[in-house]
Amino acid sequence: MHMKVILAGTAMALALPAAAQETQTVGVSIPAATHGWAGGMNYFAQEAVDRLEEVYPQLDFVLATAGDAAEQVSDIEDMLATRNIDALVVLPFESDPLTGPVAAVADSGAWVTVVDRGLSQEGIEDLYVAGDNPGFGRVSGEFMTSQMPDGGDIVVLRGIPTTIDNERVEGFEEAIDGSGINVLAMEHGNWNRDDSFTVMQDFLSRYPNIDAVWASDDDMAIGVLAAIEAAGRDDVQFVLGGAGMKEMIARTRDGDPMIPANVTYPPAMIGTAIELTAVGLTSSAPVSGEFTIGSVLITPDNAEDYYFPDSPF
């Protein structure tokens, strides 16, 4: 697994009083499992917590899931007030509303690990475990160009309009620039199966020939595949999803020609963050800085390594 690790080993020893005997409390605050990716993330967070409680008896974990940003702010305030947490691992629902409350946790002297979505203000967190959204788009785009060396006509389904989606699409557009691949149209499928099904049906009505689809997400890929199958169209050679849903990885592994590849954006990155935080609290190994989890191309050759049968995603 290629991981681009940038560990800026700074004055972490100051931030982490390594009182090995005392019980330390780690708060974990994440969005609730409202869609597939978040469901996977919840699963891996719970798994990491269960495992680390065994490994480190001196650590106590508090896991809270929030339905929206306001609830997450309350969760974090409660953790600080009632549990006096020594470290916080947070995947912010939205950057702006969470910046203040997380800064307050940092001011209290606790260790702060931010996952996936950055805060609006730099320098609050001690450790940032980030997914690579531009890289996600770039790897997807590079795969498209490699599959269609002579160019071709594609349609693109985008996610919910957010920074994440914009970064992915920009990375993708840069990667296919000049390759002869022509993007016929882009529409938002909102990372949702039903929406992407509808959008794809309309794309199929609108364009008599589509060579390939960048669905940019596995949930959307499922909707797209259903629409293509229902229309009985055989001009579409393949659909590239993303994020690594287990059902789709299994189909890539089994050599389904419509799903030749996948690009990771692993929900298990929450596990990485919790694990690194635990390492920081209990040992003298430096873990502060930024840790970017690269987006990797999954092909039939390496699909087995990315197939997690127990995960809900």
Binding site: A32, G39, G40, E247, P312
Partner: peptide, 11 residues
């Protein structure tokens, strides 16, 4: 339904 699906998808 979120609980039944474990946050993921029921297929």
């Amino acid at each position: 339904v979120t609980w039944l699906a474990d946050g993921g998808t029921l297929s």
